[in-house]
């Protein structure tokens, strides 16, 4: 028997562009910090010279975030309520995130000071702390979107892992592009081609893991419930097709193919091309998570 909804009120998708951009920038910052930690925390000597640059880039990206988050609030003046003892709410993922964000920024800035002073011991301590909170902060961005059972597309335990891996590869890709530009305009000490190619190889493993998780997510939606199938068919391959299929899937696979199988992987140009594809892929991923996840619910 035919049945049609003829009247309903429209409900808004409550999170939009500022949140998608925040997820993207937060990931880039956390990813760049991990690269910075290779030399100063894990003691890989050839990565030491790029440590400070990577860290400063990470801080700059992090400083761009607050205007996005604060301006997205209905009451921007009240943003500090998130930190007030009488207001802070332990069961809210957003409350955890605000604390992580503050600690991450503080430890990362202290870490930068110790790198600048060439103090290996304290740089290692604060680098490790900053890395822990970089991971925690980005983990929370995944969790804040995951813990909504009503948003079927987002309600998956792979969300934080996908977000963390995406953060690592997008941060690395962004840094490689910056190193390339830095070399082109001859700004500061030149970053060797070997290091850029090696970073490309490191990124490739991250891309492989990201692809595995994305495939897992696809499988879940294919074999999932009625609404999960609608998310896959009508939203990911419909409304969000550009962001999901062309950017997240095709661009990610293309970057992996370049870095794993083609002779381009041994050239700086090839790695840079893969980096642009990775940046596009993660940009797309952040968007379909935010926009796509909220879409179906607005019609209920």
């Amino acid at each position: 028997m035919e049945s049609k909804v003829i009247m309903n009120v429209f409900h808004h998708a409550t999170w939009g562009e500022p949140i998608a951009i925040y997820f993207f920038l937060m990931g880039v910052s956390a990813g760049a910090h991990v690269i910075s930690a290779f030399g100063w925390v894990f003691g890989i000597k050839r990565y030491k010279p790029i440590g400070l640059f990577a860290n400063i880039f990470s801080i700059i990206v992090l400083l761009i975030i607050p205007p996005f988050l604060i301006a997205d609030l209905g009451k921007p003046v009240r943003f500090f309520y998130l930190f007030l003892p009488g207001y802070w709410h332990g069961t809210s993922p957003m409350s955890w995130g605000s604390i992580f964000l503050i600690l991450y920024t503080s430890f990362m800035t202290t870490y930068a000071v110790f790198i600048y002073k060439n103090n290996e011991k304290w740089a290692r301590v604060f680098g490790l702390l900053a890395m822990t909170f970089a991971a925690s902060t980005h983990w929370y961005t995944g969790v804040v979107i995951q813990l909504n059972p009503t948003r079927g597309l987002n309600h998956t335990a792979t969300a934080p892992l996908l977000f963390l891996t995406g953060a690592f590869i997008s941060g690395t890709a962004m840094l490689i592009v910056l190193f390339w530009i830095k070399n082109l305009i001859k700004f500061g000490e030149r970053v060797g081609d070997e290091l850029i190619i090696e970073l490309g190889k490191v990124m490739m493993f991250g891309i492989a893991f990201e692809m595995l998780l994305t495939f897992n997510e696809y499988l879940q939606l294919t074999y999932g419930t009625d609404d999960e199938f609608v998310y896959l068919k009508d939203i990911l391959f419909g409304v969000m097709q550009t962001y999901y299929y062309w950017l997240n899937v095709v661009a990610l696979v293309a970057s992996f193919v370049i870095l794993a199988f083609t002779p381009l992987r041994k050239t700086v140009g090839g790695v840079i091309l893969a980096c642009f594809l990775v940046i596009a892929a993660i940009w797309g991923m952040r968007h379909w998570w935010v926009y796509g996840g909220q879409y179906l619910q607005t019609f209920f």
């Binding site: 209905g74 009451k75 009503t150 209920f300």
Partner: peptide, 19 residues
């Protein structure tokens, strides 16, 4: 107390909240 972050609206399964 509300800061207008709309996280409650995202969480509500019934679209019962509005901004």
């Amino acid at each position: 107390r509300c800061i207008g972050c709309r996280t409650c609206m995202v969480a509500c399964p019934y679209n019962a909240r509005h901004f």
